[in-house]
Design a binder for these strands. Structure first.
Lengths: 344, 344
DNA sequence: TAACAGAATGTAACCGTTTCCATTTTGGGC
DNA sequence: GCCCAAAATGGAAACGGTTACATTCTGTTA
């Protein structure tokens, strides 16, 4: 049975209030008293009971993190970024992953009720109503990569559209006539935005967006593989494939390889994200760099601002810039003398 | 101010004890009463206060997960496996990552004290003393991929040595004379075990383990790249490179590619882990499959056994088998007619 | 040296549950 | 209609902290 604050108080010959003051640095305590209390506490292996503490303070020192069923690299980088900030604040992270549809998100949100002082929610398709219904008003919330950029919630996302535009522009500049796009699916926010950027840039250049050059995937290597195969079988082949993420780009390159199509000579392939492996595949992948862990860290920073300054909403939307990284898979480094080209 | 159990009791005209019984399914409650209470609870948006509940029950419905600073794929897969089981039990996962040295692990363990009903600890180099000092006796513990296999703790790890032996045997069978190994570093348990398996098999085959064929890395692509470069510069080149994980293998292939060395014709390259991307690199990577998410899930399963049956330690060590996956990068599929060869 | 402000400490209520034990209801069997 | 076991419910004491407020020490000033 662990020691309680009362045990420490009795043993040190003081009241519980004084012990509490020592452990929370609240109110004045004579130095000698403090030392005696700390000594007794150490001897008794006293650790304040978290449940009792949060019951009376109504704070948990914990932030909730809700993540969709996401893929490899991205997942771990987001957590790493969040966790880093969370630890810096002496908080803890309650992580719940693999929530895809609305009902799962609702259940997860509800199950965290009362356990957390704030929430970071990454949900590809969540609506404002679901959030207001399932999150108590006084719990600060930061949204990650959601479509709710104008909903009055604090939110952060990556400049997907801008990155996709820059990539498309790069391919156009390289003279590509038929740029195909393997998208990440209809229901995913990032996927939609990347597709939008691709469209926008083509239209800005006076090109038509051809249905025959669009394939829908799901961000996995195998989707990229299948997408590329499908494109190869179409009557007119694209000259470049722009996959909505690196995993799919790598899957696509593999399919082209199998079909004897040389990258980048016969066809260019580019991705999005700049996962660590991107520069080590063959040929090294031209892509759009996204500082994923910064996304997580930034979300945590903003969450703590909200937690520490209640009533000060600061509910604006924030966009993290991306960076075009030109490697060999696009066959066009000649158009960008420096290896990186900042976007925005 | 959220509704409390007393509000519900008053509104429903019963005592708090009865409301509690309804919400915990403890003790009998007349159906009509139950319905009335649930109706009131819904109307008042009552959610039991977690802190109060754990203060009174001494249970938190939470398991702690301590992870080292690990890399991409592995990290997310472990969490996925754990989280899946955790959710099945209606529990939550308190995740803390990026703990490398002993003192960080200690701090993290201590900070979780009282917040969790059990712990899953993945620590590459942690000793039994650190654990016993920092984890209360009554908190069940499951160790993941640690050297403490015989320490009287419940533990699980991957059959690293067995997998490495199988891979080495495969390369020997393919006629390789000089098999190099890029290891994952001295301080990492998995790395040491994989190196041990490589050594063991070579010795079993009557070969000498040559210093000149060993390079030390850290599981990153860039370490693989640098490791391969170093091997290329040595007086006698290896005929095959066995990297301690896939990321390093991919880094190594990239270095060979840059040096104009053909894989697998001039040199074979193989890895370990079978990350999703392995089959899509060029050439597809021969590797050892590890069901990472099963590792996490299994750890959670065993932890829940311990949580639910206290006093029933079940502290044995458990090993997850691996599977040799032969693809093109070893240039030796001819030796194994079927694409996969079970190990153990 | 008395008065007094401010520092140091103590007292006890409160946070919202669970649960032990006591009390009241209920439904048969007679 | 009475008795009684079982079912249903209630009362109140924990659980272990925090904190508002009261009280007791200090050291300083007049």
């Amino acid at each position: 049975m662990p020691a309680t604050i009362r045990d420490v108080a009795r043993e040190a010959g003081v009241s519980v209030a004084t012990v509490s003051r020592v452990f929370n640095d609240s109110g004045p305590v004579r130095e000698a008293t403090r030392a005696r209390i700390l000594e007794v506490a150490r001897r008794l292996r006293f650790t304040p009971n978290t449940a009792a503490r949060s019951l009376s303070t109504r704070r948990t020192q914990t932030v909730g993190v809700l993540l969709p069923d996401l893929y490899g690299e991205f997942f771990s980088e987001v957590i790493r970024g969040i966790d880093q900030e969370v630890q810096r604040h002496g908080f803890h992270a309650l992580v719940s992953s693999s929530h895809n549809d609305r009902s799962e998100v609702e259940a997860a949100l509800r199950s965290m009720r009362g356990r957390v002082d704030g929430l970071i929610v990454m949900a590809p398709d969540v609506d404002a109503a679901t959030l207001t219904m399932n999150v108590p008003d006084r719990v600060p919330l930061v949204l990650l990569n959601t479509p709710l950029t104008e909903s009055g919630y604090a939110s952060i996302d990556v400049d997907n559209a801008g990155g996709a535009r820059a990539m498309t522009a790069h391919l156009l500049r390289a003279g590509h006539e038929r740029i195909a796009h393997i998208s990440g699916g209809e229901r995913n926010h990032d996927a939609r935005e990347r597709l939008r950027g691709y469209r926008m840039e083509l239209e800005a250049a006076g090109r038509k967006v051809e249905k025959a050059l669009l394939v829908s995937g799901d961000f996995t290597e195998s989707a990229g593989h299948d997408g590329a195969r499908a494109l190869l079988d179409r009557p007119v082949r694209p000259t470049a494939i722009f996959a909505a993420n690196d995993s799919m780009a790598i899957g696509a390159m593999s399919a082209l390889q199998d079909a004897g199509v040389l990258v980048p000579d016969d066809m260019a392939v580019v991705g999005f994200d700049d996962i660590p492996i991107a520069q080590y595949v063959n040929p090294p992948l031209t892509t759009v760099r996204v500082a994923i862990s910064r996304l997580g860290a930034r979300a945590a920073v903003r969450l703590f601002q909200a937690i520490q300054a209640p009533g000060n909403p600061e509910r604006r939307h924030e966009t993290l810039s991306t960076e075009l990284v030109v490697r060999r898979s696009c066959g066009a480094q000649r158009f960008t003398p420096n290896i990186k080209e900042a976007v925005r």
